[in-house]
Design a protein around this nucleic acid. Structure first.
Lengths: 333, 333
DNA sequence: CTGTTAGCGCGTTCAT
DNA sequence: ATGAACGCGCTAACAG
């Protein structure tokens, strides 16, 4: 690894002159410039950003802490993050927590030690400790997808209540009066809010709370499978299922298929989160789609703003609207 | 940000003693240990890995350079990489090249400047320049998914020829004698090899080359759509389509649906790469599935081996077998 | 078992 | 327009 000093020696100048030329900072003559550039090229000089970061306290690196990159929703968010970051010369470290607080804590510790300039956090639990810990270390953080009551922090999320309410309103309009909600973990704000949205729609229609059964589980295919089986075993049997995310929906649809319960003939199904068009030949499920790419992009832009222009801006909460996409998974009763 | 010196002062010891305690290296008394740990905790000390890296020339960071994390195949590879890396205390920087050589070059330059310990590279072009450039800088690299003739480097990839040959053999056994191959960019080794595999199967069955039409495009949904439309317009019209990756397959299936060509009644379709079970309710397409997760995992393990134990091991090429999964997208003619 | 010295590669500060 | 000195935070090498 050649250093700035070796380049300087070869170019017959001082190290600092090399630095000035390469960073185009301060004064230097055209001749210095030519000699330095030639020397750098000949020696295949690659600047050491570690050294620069040690001085500047800037790493041009962000941490992205999410539950599981394998979920197409997070994949899309991640792509939005990466694009927005690289646009501004920042690099992204990817961390999968699988919703485990222990993994989240470990990753956050590493990111802080690596002195990332900022962290995009999808908190495994909707409590403020993690956010406060990051902030205490003087590192910028933006919370993505979830709310964190009690923390003063930028948040970018989808409108879970609105999306859920629209879906249930749609089901009610079709005449459904027994709906089962298959939700995620109660400790996660989106799981709660989607349930709330459902209940609000019910209340708005002046229907009794008994018209709705709420099941809490995990945001996974297995959990969707389990909850769907529980749901169809209820008396009276629900005429519609609400799946609180894409994986739950897929698990539920698989379970229904195995049970011989046809969709939408025997039961209607709606879901939260769409699958990317590139993955589905024939979109079937009626969903509330979140703008995943924009969510990642927007969160990253907020984060970079704070990093680059550290003026004391008030904290913002950006709530992106969901979009109701009606397809063929529901019918009137 | 508190430093090791402040901790030392507070603990009443020298900085190096703090270092020894915190890294559990060298000798120190129980008393030193207790005092240091107490001081570190009180001051919320977070070690600065930049400084450590500057000395040690090790960043505990890998770069993962792939085409597009949005493709579930790459998503799965990435998850395998991330899991294997974090297991050994390494962190992963994600880079999407979109198969663009320019983006690849830029990302590689950044990774080298950040002094990553190793790079997992899915080369946008199957030429050795990029690999050699990385190696010239003394950075370890493993090539993933593709071959790079002319480079001395570890490679982990799926058996494209085998998988393609098995799929075509299967089609031929069903009686198909007109097959269209919808492949990726000719500059990418997997696109070539999947075509080769198809042709080998044809030759093995002693059928004329005319039984097969090869189209080259991109590994995208749009390209799959375009090529499928070209394919069904051929005379004689193919009775079967071979899609060289998952996106091409989906694009082709969408095009066929729009054209009113039924699968498998009017035309049979097979594809390379499976979709994760978590994304598909009712798997339909007959495919050659690659072990994507293992590919990422294995590549990372090879890379970490070289990084951690820099003995001069001979370069290895690991070719992982594909698995033929027969479903409902083909019929006999 | 503990401490001093020195230096990793770079860029800020101040001098020339 | 250029350079010398110094320090970012940490740890190897060497004393003690």
């Amino acid at each position: 690894m050649t250093t700035i000093r070796e380049v300087a020696k070869r170019a017959g100048v001082a190290p600092i002159t090399v630095s000035r030329v390469l960073n185009n900072s301060g004064y230097f003559s055209q001749e210095s410039k030519d000699r330095v550039e030639a020397a750098a090229a000949e020696l295949h000089y690659v600047p050491n950003l570690l050294a620069r970061s040690l001085r500047s306290n800037r790493t041009q690196t962000l941490g992205l802490v999410l539950s599981d990159i394998t979920n197409p929703f997070w994949t899309t968010v991640a792509r939005g993050v990466e694009d927005a970051a690289s646009e501004q010369g920042f690099t992204v470290i990817l961390c999968n927590t699988d919703e485990k607080e222990r993994k989240q804590a470990e990753y956050l510790a590493v990111l802080l030690r690596k002195r990332v300039d900022g962290i995009l956090l999808v908190p495994a639990r909707s409590t403020p400790e993690a956010v406060k810990m990051i902030q205490k270390q003087g590192v910028q953080v933006v919370v993505v997808d979830r709310r964190v009551p009690g923390a003063e922090v930028d948040v970018v999320r989808g409108s879970s209540t609105q999306g859920a309410a629209e879906l249930v309103k749609y089901l009610l309009a079709l005449g459904h009066r027994q709906v089962a909600i298959l939700s995620g973990p109660e400790r996660v704000s989106t799981a709660q809010e989607r349930v709330n949205g459902c209940q609000q729609a019910l209340a708005a229609a002046q229907l009794p709370a008994a018209a709705m059964t709420v099941l809490y589980g995990e945001f996974t295919v297995e959990s969707g499978d389990t909850m769907a089986r529980q749901a169809v075993a209820l008396t009276p049997r629900p005429t519609a299922l609400f799946a609180a995310n894409n994986f739950i929906a897929i698990g539920a649809l698989k379970a229904l298929r195995e049970l011989g319960v046809r969709v939408p003939e025997d039961i209607s199904v709606v879901g939260f989160d769409d699958l990317p068009a590139s993955l589905v030949v024939d979109p079937f499920l009626t969903v509330a789609a979140q703008p995943a790419y924009q969510m990642g992009q927007c969160a990253t832009e907020l984060l970079l703003q704070r990093i680059i222009a550290p003026e004391a801006t008030p904290y913002r909460e950006v709530v992106l609207p969901t979009q109701l996409i009606v397809r063929q998974s529901c019918r009137a009763v």
